[in-house]
């Protein structure tokens, strides 16, 4: 099978007047796990939002392709239909919009040719809620309404599994998770990988990477990829800190 490829190439992005991302290149193939690390405010979430297609993020130059589909031509919902999924750092709340109702609408939008058997779907959602250690009543709650930080993250991971995307960006999915939750969320990521998804994990911590070993690690400093390497790079970062990158940028070893 030919692997799917998400290709972010020489991407420069500004928010308002300010240029945040500068010529960022990351190529993800199905089944691969990439970690994206970097100090606060360097543009990691900006990258996630840009890939999603929010109009507030203006692409100045560069390419964004999923296989041969130019994502820049597509609206937000069309990108999702092309196979993209982003778990947001701060998932929004929609009062009164029942999770199950929302999820079903999303699912049938993303898989229009598939017959959705409602009862099975509900069962699957309830099973997954149990898997993530969440009460089944969460299915009937308003979207993220009254959820704790960690609960929201688990709900994002749940959607990632149910919606079966081709490419996944997880923006700090690990922040705010307790030890047990971190373990199940890692399992969920491993499962998504098994299903053939290509994944970018944005994180500040080595912790999650102990559970899921990344194939590649990229360091984003001031909107640029300062270094790319294999899984071991994450440990190095932990040891030497971002101070290391001050003063000059190291040439990317892997594109």
């Amino acid at each position: 099978m030919i692997p799917n490829v998400l290709s972010i190439k020489d991407l420069s992005v500004s928010v308002g007047e300010k240029e945040i991302l500068k010529s960022v290149t990351i190529t993800v193939k199905s089944g691969e796990i990439h970690a994206l690390m970097g100090p606060n405010g360097t543009g990691k979430s900006t990258l996630a939002h840009t890939v999603v297609g929010s109009i507030r993020y203006k692409v100045n130059s560069g390419d964004l392709f999923l296989n041969d589909v130019n994502l820049r031509d597509l609206q937000v919902y069309e990108r999702a239909r092309a196979g993209l999924f982003v778990a947001f750092q701060e998932p929004v709340t929609v009062q009164g919009l029942r999770f199950l109702n929302y999820l079903r609408t999303a699912y049938s939008s993303l898989h229009p040719d598939e017959k959705l058997e409602y009862k099975k779907f509900v069962e699957e959602v309830k099973e997954l809620l149990a898997f993530f250690g969440l009460d089944s009543s969460f299915a009937d709650r308003g979207l993220n309404e009254g959820l704790s930080g960690g609960e929201k993250k688990r709900m994002e991971a749940l959607q990632m599994l149910i919606l079966r995307p081709k490419f996944i960006i997880l923006d700090e999915i690990d922040s705010g998770l307790d030890v047990d939750a971190l373990r199940v969320v890692s399992k969920a990521i491993a499962r998504a990988k098994e299903n053939g998804a290509g994944i970018i994990i944005i994180t500040h911590y080595q912790r999650i990477l102990d559970y899921i070993k990344p194939d590649f690690v990229h360091v984003l400093i001031n909107g640029r990829i300062a270094e790319s390497g294999n899984g071991d790079l994450a440990k190095l970062i932990e040891e030497r800190g971002y101070e290391y990158y001050k003063g000059g940028e190291i040439d990317a070893k892997i594109g």
Binding site: P91, V94, Q95, G96, Y102, A106, G142, L143
Partner: peptide, 26 residues
């Protein structure tokens, strides 16, 4: 952000807005 979030899960803009309004009225 709400509209973007729903759209990022494959839902069209007008459907996203309807869902939000209907949620409000739920």
């Amino acid at each position: 952000e709400q509209v973007d979030y729903l759209m990022s899960r494959g839902i069209r803009e007008e459907d996203a807005r309807s869902l939000i309004v209907l949620g409000f009225l739920d």
